[in-house]
């Protein structure tokens, strides 16, 4: 079942077309990645899908309902973790609930529950400046989950992490999404990451960004050293060029 769909999305800034006629969809429970080189318009596309920007032409549908230009419908996690430095981890994670008008006590209880789940409960009263990169990312993800949306857009969620932490976070992330029965699109320019994490990959390329290929990822083992993985990576790299 398709849960999020973009149809014929085109957007230009100051007369420069960034993306043209982009159509994509996300099925329930699926993780889809959007792969492309820097500057191809991935973030622009996300801003359209999240409703923060309005496309020149095209529509965005969530559960079959048009939500073009309506922010707050999907959970959007941007490139950096964007934790507010003057709020504690707990307060940061509570933000989406508070903004929704949830009672403070209940918000606190729910935030504490998710922090426990993400192994951050001990650090709940620390300011983000005191957290490690991986912890910050987990906190940001916890906050995104508490938006209560079942669809998540994640803009290069792991790009700021060191290689070791990143590998750990990627495995953890896929498990969490699958466990929660959520669906998500995430942006990456890392082919390995795309294969490791997603069920399907859209490749965005061209001078004016458009979707040039769609690859189904069906691997028995999500292991970067398996020959199957390497074959797929080769095929995708061909397409990105």
């Amino acid at each position: 079942m398709v849960i999020l769909e973009g149809k014929g999305l085109t957007k230009s800034f100051d007369g420069n077309k960034i993306i043209e006629n982009v159509s994509l969809n996300l099925k329930k429970g699926e993780i889809v990645s959007l792969l492309g080189v820097s500057g191809v318009g991935k973030t622009t596309l996300f801003n359209l899908l999240s409703g923060l920007d309005v496309p020149d032409t095209g529509e965005v549908y969530l559960n079959g309902e048009a939500v073009t230009g309506m922010p707050g419908k999907v959970g959007y996690m941007q490139q950096s973790d964007l934790l507010l430095p003057f709020k504690t981890t707990l307060e940061n994670v509570m933000i989406p609930l508070i903004l929704k008008g949830v009672d403070k006590k209940e918000a606190k209880a729910r935030a504490e529950a998710i922090l426990t789940e993400f192994s951050l409960f001990e650090s709940r009263s620390l300011y983000p400046g005191k957290l490690s990169g991986g912890m910050r990312q987990r906190a940001a993800l916890a906050r995104t989950f508490l938006t209560g949306c079942s669809v998540f857009l994640l803009d290069e969620p792991f790009s700021a992490l060191d290689a070791l932490t990143r590998g750990e976070m990627q495995r953890w992330f896929r498990n969490v999404i699958k466990e929660k029965g959520a669906s998500g699109v995430f942006i990456t320019h890392d082919v390995d990451e795309a294969i490791l994490l997603s069920d399907r990959i859209y490749i965005l390329s061209g001078e004016v960004g458009s979707i040039t290929a769609e690859v189904q990822v069906e691997l028995k083992e999500r292991d970067a050293f398996e020959s199957e993985f390497i074959e797929l990576k080769k095929a995708i790299l061909e397409k990105v060029k």
């Binding site: 409703g51 923060l52 922010p71 959007y76 941007q78 964007l82 507010l84 903004l99 929704k100």
Partner: peptide
Amino acid sequence: ADKNVLRLYRSMGGGYFKTLFDVKFPYAM
């Protein structure tokens, strides 16, 4: 105030005054 944080607030459905008191004031301190 961090422009991306402001956008984040908007994406979570935060209105002007909520954003003002929650984000802009602390950043302005």
